[in-house]
Computed example of a mutant assay.
Amino acid sequence: MKTADPELMRAINRLSVLDTIRRNGPIARIEISKRTELSTSTVSAITGSLIDDGLILSRHEGDLRNAAARGRPRVMLELNPEASRVVGAKIAATRMTFVVSDFCGEVLSEFSLPVRIDRMPIDVIADLVEDGVRACVMDSGLTLSEIDMICLGIPGVVEHRTGVVRSSPIFSDENVDFAAVMSPRFGIRTIIESDVHAVTLAHHWFGKARHLEDMVLISLERTLGLGVLHNSQLFRGAGGLSHNLGDLVLGSSADSMSRLASLAGESAILGDGPREGLYADAVRLGRGISHAQTLIKAKDAQIMSAAERAGDAIGVTVANIVTLFAPPRVILVGSSLALGKPFIDRLTKAFNSAIPPSLADVSELVFDDAEDFFWARGAAAVALYELYESPWSTTGPAL
Results as ranks from 00 to 15, higher is better:
residue 360 A to Y: 15
residue 120 M to T: 11
residue 227 G to E: 01
residue 58 S to N: 09
residue 303 I to D: 03
residue 191 I to L: 14
residue 242 S to H: 12
residue 327 P to F: 00
residue 352 N to R: 15
residue 99 V to Y: 07
residue 383 A to I: 04
residue 133 V to M: 04
residue 159 E to M: 14
residue 272 D to H: 15
residue 168 S to Q: 03
residue 376 A to H: 05
residue 320 N to L: 12
residue 135 A to R: 05
residue 308 E to A: 05
residue 42 T to M: 05
residue 24 N to W: 06
residue 258 S to C: 15
residue 388 Y to Q: 14
residue 190 T to S: 10
residue 60 H to S: 10
residue 1 M to R: 07
residue 105 G to S: 06
residue 359 L to K: 10
residue 333 V to T: 13
residue 236 R to F: 07
residue 222 R to M: 13
residue 368 D to G: 00
residue 4 A to W: 01
residue 330 V to Q: 06
residue 257 M to P: 08
residue 59 R to N: 07
residue 46 I to W: 03
residue 304 M to Q: 13
residue 357 P to C: 00
residue 269 I to M: 15
residue 320 N to G: 13
residue 242 S to P: 11
residue 41 S to W: 11
residue 351 F to E: 03
residue 117 I to W: 08
residue 41 S to F: 10
residue 269 I to T: 12
residue 270 L to Q: 02
residue 315 G to K: 00
residue 137 V to K: 03
residue 220 L to C: 06
residue 5 D to C: 00
residue 139 D to S: 09
residue 346 R to S: 11
residue 297 K to R: 11
residue 216 V to T: 11
residue 97 T to H: 08
residue 241 L to S: 08
residue 57 L to D: 06
residue 298 A to G: 04
residue 264 A to C: 11
residue 61 E to D: 02
residue 311 G to Q: 07
residue 103 F to V: 05
residue 165 V to Y: 03
residue 20 T to D: 04
residue 154 I to C: 04
residue 197 H to N: 14
residue 278 L to T: 11
residue 367 F to R: 06
residue 155 P to F: 06
residue 352 N to Q: 15
residue 7 E to G: 10
residue 397 P to H: 01
residue 254 A to M: 15
residue 366 V to H: 03
residue 303 I to K: 01
residue 51 I to K: 09
residue 121 P to T: 08
residue 214 D to K: 00
residue 127 D to M: 14
residue 17 V to R: 00
residue 375 W to Q: 01
residue 327 P to T: 02
residue 343 F to V: 02
residue 342 P to V: 07
residue 122 I to Y: 09
residue 278 L to C: 09
residue 339 L to W: 06
residue 12 I to M: 00
residue 316 V to A: 12
residue 119 R to Y: 09
residue 161 R to Y: 14
residue 118 D to K: 13
residue 313 A to L: 04
residue 161 R to P: 11
residue 47 T to N: 05
residue 359 L to S: 01
residue 377 R to P: 09
residue 229 L to Q: 03
residue 212 L to D: 08
residue 271 G to N: 11
residue 333 V to A: 07
residue 192 I to H: 12
residue 80 N to V: 15
residue 42 T to A: 08
residue 254 A to R: 15
residue 170 I to Y: 09
residue 220 L to N: 02
residue 341 K to Y: 11
residue 264 A to K: 10
residue 25 G to C: 00
residue 355 I to F: 12
residue 93 A to E: 13
residue 118 D to C: 15
residue 3 T to K: 04
residue 378 G to M: 03
residue 92 A to H: 14
residue 182 M to W: 13
